[in-house]
Write a protein that binds this DNA or RNA. Structure first.
Lengths: 348, 348
DNA sequence: GTAAGTCTTGGAAACGTTACCGTCCAGGAG
DNA sequence: CTCCTGGACGGTAACGTTTCCAAGACTTAC
């Protein structure tokens, strides 16, 4: 059978091909490709012409092989991309990196902390120029010797003092609780995903808000969930609302938790005040629009990428930076219900 | 001896270091690292010991430099990760690729089709083993000579006959329209994002459903939006509902469009039947839970990754594959409203 | 007119890996 | 005892780029 098809493995032209075609040396081509300093204009023209004609494109892999040169990729390690929170970070950091000609390699870690370590090392072996990590629990000191700059996103990691970008969790927690307390609520349940750093800080803010108005926290309303998903929150909400002394307000410390809370409340037909942490799509479209404490998640990703690019390009030896983004309260209705509406059956 | 401080710029050990430490040749180390065939067991042990002691990890960049060897990364090029549709694809393909030891490099393309081409070429220059592309409009024939396997996701591209994974758009469109027609609706508006391939197919299904029950399509209800976002859909919905002869049902051909439709309807206080294409989070929690035509988006991503891995590893020379996933109707309420409820003011 | 620069340019050495080609040794066959 | 076979291993040449060094061409200053 005749091979009329385009050659299946058309090897792409290299700098050597370009050099031959332009009648110059290899070094000259390289110089032209990298900004063209120290090359006569006329020569540079000839080289560029050859590049166009051959459709040459620099082989980034070979480039990254040279010592010192890291590849022009950043790595982003995070959990479930299906969570809009993570998706926003990914999108924003991708944008910033892209503007500087950097690609982003993704590592997913839904799994164990061991899986995270493996994923990170895989990425390091790909010679990425830097790592953005939304860390799970577990020690990250193994990164110290990797010789790669690291930026932690959303929460710090133990064992490594690196740059970090996060939101003002304590301030946000305080904001949410203070808002509810100001409406007269004194029995405010707080739902916490298990052992996340952020969760602890939000709880701290919640406690501080109580102290500030001399209210005592009923510890039985501080609810540590076994898992950080909507189902766990739904179950916990059901249980706490069916107690003899239910809360008059609920503070869900995570977007997925908020969803679970709302599910349970709809099912029960109860309407305590609800404030969520992190905004989410359609929050304003629900039967009672949901009041949330929100921050600029995209900025989280953008800052992380910017910070990492600085570290990667310049020999940026400043001490680890710490960027904290503010939170704001967005009142939509669910957080403004008065205490006495909590037990009411929802009118249907 | 205690290594108190990891050297700040400890250059990572290479195979040569391992070879020296194990007292073997370079080739032997390589053989051990790649499965260890043709190496005596005792020797392999020694090498493995040295690897552990030094914390050696293969430099993937150098490996990928060798001719024929592509890097163990796949590229994924898609639009806004903030769209749960794209996020699901990304997550699923990431998972599958990860299981085979492949990383995924992301290219975002919110921009022009020219930006897409640039992004793709950037990724190709990184010697990825394959490309998964959710193509924008525009010609993709420039990929033909790249020597890299390509899988298109969600929609085909012009100019290149490659593998493709997509959902049964026409079937889904038909399903949605048929469902509405079966309830007696005869004036069904369809909102279409501009010039997407999928959009055209969904419209085709919509028309087919009409033909099947001998209903005629009022062409003024086939609404081409100037943009594919919620705002455009909201505006269009407002306009069409305020006409003298408004539709009794609306088919929103995209998840974001559905959101816009719902926003407009809430504002207007009107309740025509609504069916959306693609499921979305909280669809069941809205005042009237939203009926949708849904498909397994994650499977879209998984299939794409699997297909690409096959092409990349084996010299898979089968003709281009074409995988079409089915759609299913999920009835939740908004799609089951009868025709005469459309003009009703919403009780408040 | 010569010395000392400056600007351009070509060539070669690396980077860390894999693939190939030998060499060496052991053991079996003749 | 020799020859051959085959497995185990060491060495080296790539892969495509960047960087360094040296050499040539040309300018400037004395």
């Amino acid at each position: 059978m005749p091979e009329t098809f385009p050659p299946p493995e058309a090897s792409r032209p290299t700098m050597i091909d370009v050099a031959r075609r332009a009648g110059v040396g290899l070094g000259t081509v390289s110089r032209v490709v990298n900004g063209g300093h120290g090359v006569r204009d006329e020569t540079a023209q000839r080289v560029r012409k050859a590049i166009d004609e051959l459709g040459f494109q620099r082989n980034e892999v070979a480039r990254a092989l040279r010592p010192g040169k890291k590849s022009s990729s950043l790595a982003l390690v995070l959990g479930d991309l299906t969570n809009p929170f993570f998706a926003s970070i990914a999108k924003a950091s991708l944008e910033v990196a892209g503007q500087s000609g950097f690609a982003v390699v993704l590592g997913s870690v839904d799994e164990d902390p061991e899986g995270e370590k493996r994923a990170i090392q895989e990425l390091v072996s790909r010679q990425v120029a830097g790592l953005m990590i939304v860390p799970d629990q577990g020690d990250h000191s193994f990164l110290a010797g990797a010789g790669v700059p690291v930026v932690f996103v959303d929460r710090p990691a133990t064992g490594l003092d690196a740059d970090i970008v996060m939101v003002d969790n304590e301030g946000g927690g305080r904001l949410a609780a203070a808002h509810l307390l100001a409406q007269g609520h004194r029995r405010i349940a707080i739902l916490l995903a298990p052992s996340y750093y952020t969760t602890g800080r939000r709880l701290r803010g919640y406690r501080r808000a109580h102290r500030e108005v001399d209210a005592t926290v009923d510890e039985s309303l501080v609810i540590q969930l076994p898992e950080g998903n909507a189902e766990a929150a739904e179950k916990a909400t059901r249980e706490v609302m069916l107690r003899a002394d239910p809360p008059t307000a609920i503070f869900a410390s995570t977007n997925f938790l908020t969803e679970g809370v709302l599910r349970a409340l709809r099912e029960l037909g109860r309407e305590p005040a609800v404030v969520g942490f992190d905004d989410f799509r359609l929050a304003d479209m629900l039967p009672t629009p949901v009041t949330v404490v929100a921050s600029d998640i995209a900025e989280l990703g953008r800052s992380a990428a910017r910070l990492l690019l600085d570290r990667a390009s310049a020999a940026d030896r400043r001490p680890p930076q710490r960027i904290v983004l503010p939170c704001a309260l967005i009142q939509r209705g669910s957080g403004e219900r008065p205490p006495d509406s909590a037990g009411n059956r929802k009118p249907r």
